[in-house]
Design a protein around this nucleic acid. Sequence first.
DNA 1: CGAAACTGTTCAACCCATACGCTTTTTCAC
DNA 2: GTGAAAAAGCGTATGGGTTGAACAGTTTCG
Lengths: 237, 237
Amino acid sequence: MTEDRGELPPGLALSWGVLPVQRRGPKPALSIEQIVATGIEFGDRDGFEAISLQRIAAHLGVTTNAMYRYVRSKEELIVLVNDKAVGLPPELPSGWRPAAIAWVNAQVKLYAERPWLLDVPIRGAPVTPNQLRWVEAMLTALSETGLSQHDNLGCLLLLSGYVRNYASLARQLGSSADAPVQAEQVGRFLVPRLIEGGYPTLTSVYLNQEYEDGLDDDLDFGLARILDGIDVLIAKR
Amino acid sequence: MTEDRGELPPGLALSWGVLPVQRRGPKPALSIEQIVATGIEFGDRDGFEAISLQRIAAHLGVTTNAMYRYVRSKEELIVLVNDKAVGLPPELPSGWRPAAIAWVNAQVKLYAERPWLLDVPIRGAPVTPNQLRWVEAMLTALSETGLSQHDNLGCLLLLSGYVRNYASLARQLGSSADAPVQAEQVGRFLVPRLIEGGYPTLTSVYLNQEYEDGLDDDLDFGLARILDGIDVLIAKR
DNA sequence: CGAAACTGTTCAACCCATACGCTTTTTCAC
DNA sequence: GTGAAAAAGCGTATGGGTTGAACAGTTTCG
């Protein structure tokens, strides 16, 4: 009856709602939901670094170590917070291409709303419920391409990697108020060294200020490349 | 004369060899090179977690806080260690397509040799010397496509995101000895929940064990998609 | 020589994690 | 039914790790 979650990766069982059966002893003062919700709250307010066991414990009126009755480690907590914060994917339009565009844009929006999600270290393949909802949504949209499951997985890997990369860059360049200032400062430091160090192409990139303009275009650009590439594959088979 | 590195991101100045000028006072007992080399040593031997200021300090016969005379923070240390460990890119063959393939494979090899590089959190766009060598190499290879610099940057973003994602997945699935066992265990846990939870596509993916076979094929697959997508763009312009 | 500047150490705070001990509640034997 | 044992909960104590402030020793410049 009691699931043997000994060997499972941190957060897997808990994210699916499998909690260790408790048979005797005092009632828990807290709940996982409460803890995770507090973690998200702190993340939204003060960023990823603010999600600490100590802070959550203090906020809930408990000592830090009481947390370890609910999660095995901070890593497990982060996995749970991440899955909850990711939430559910939107309804995708029909047609794999519009669906892919909608899916990518939804993720970009998500990362814009909760930038700290980009700071969550990636442990490996997604296994938690909400993450898998996103995967499932895109995978079913891709199923109409007629490609093999294997190929569809490859396409998914391509898309998800791209979104994350793009969102990470967009956060650095675009979001915060002093970002342009900082970017300019970096440029002033970097350009002379690029010139002297033998980085001709990068030098011209920086001098043309290619990195500054329209990030929205960049998103569509890379996405179009990927989708065209998939199209080529579909035509080929 | 003294560069104002106050506003620069951590590790930027140091990675380019700009150290604060020292005029009087005792000679430093250590050097940045020494510290970074020790960090890489620990990373290679025991993984990313083993790179700690305390350990490095102990190994070099100093107290932990003496480290802060050399680096501003652990983050800065990690940036330096990362750049050094990344090293120089290989010579790329001529032709942008072969060059891209070689570039991607070289990175995959790098990540296979130093898996802990995948645990280094990504702060944003690359700015350190060796990282930029890689960027420069690929960018010059792409320059023969006749695309705009802007487009070339988009292609690069595509490729680098893909490599990292792929390598991260490959590490999880393929490397360690007990990985298959763990994967199977995850599958046993997950499949019933996928069935009941309404994940039909993922269920079939797991049942067909699509995730197990040939990762090398996957690398080539996604890469081919990207390159085909770029090809389409070139033809279009 | 004296003062300025840089060195490294000590002290202190916060965070993650483990071990142990006390209390509470359930279970089961009598 | 009742009471003791078992197990779960929380707190205290302890230790490794990152970070910063305050302090004392050293070297070099003026």
